[in-house]
């Protein structure tokens, strides 16, 4: 009777099968990762948040800027504003002609605009 355990050669065949099976990330995930990249770039470009200081230090005298920032929702809101600014600048720089070009610029030609939005077919199909 032969040894039921797998030999190295056979286990290597299993590893090879695992290496070959590599699911590609969805366009939605790639888009989320790129969104994060743009937001992180904007955060890095924005001034260091005051929140890094101890909370007690903030409660005393507040400057005009701090009041204005607080009025629009604090530094996170400013990060959003900065994101929009950076992204706008980048769009101007990259100069994409239309949405298709923009998508190709961000994600490469393997993805199209249709990959970024859920298909309406799901809602239109009867059954």
């Amino acid at each position: 009777m032969t040894d039921p355990r797998m030999n190295d050669h056979e286990i290597e065949a299993l590893f090879a099968a695992a290496r070959a099976e590599r699911a590609e990330p969805s366009a939605a995930l790639m888009a989320r990762i790129m969104d994060d990249a743009m937001i992180a770039a904007a955060e890095a470009a924005a001034p260091r948040p005051v929140a890094a200081r101890p909370v007690a230090a903030q409660t005393g005298r507040r400057g005009l800027v701090a009041v204005l920032v607080a009025a629009i929702g604090g530094w996170p809101a400013l990060a959003g504003v900065a994101t929009a600014g950076v992204f706008g600048l980048w769009i101007g720089y990259a100069g994409p002609g239309d949405v298709g070009t923009l998508t190709a610029t961000i994600l490469g030609s393997a993805y199209g605009p249709n990959d970024l939005v859920p298909s309406l077919d799901t809602y239109l199909t009867e059954g």
């Binding site: 590599r22 790639m30 790129m34 990249a37 743009m38 990259a94 610029t105 961000i106 994600l107 490469g108």
Partner: peptide
């Protein structure tokens, strides 16, 4: 601040 670099890194690294 190079957005193209982020795109290339995403395409290169995210799959693995």
């Amino acid at each position: 601040g190079d957005a193209r670099a982020a795109r290339v890194l995403t395409l290169r690294l995210a799959p693995w």
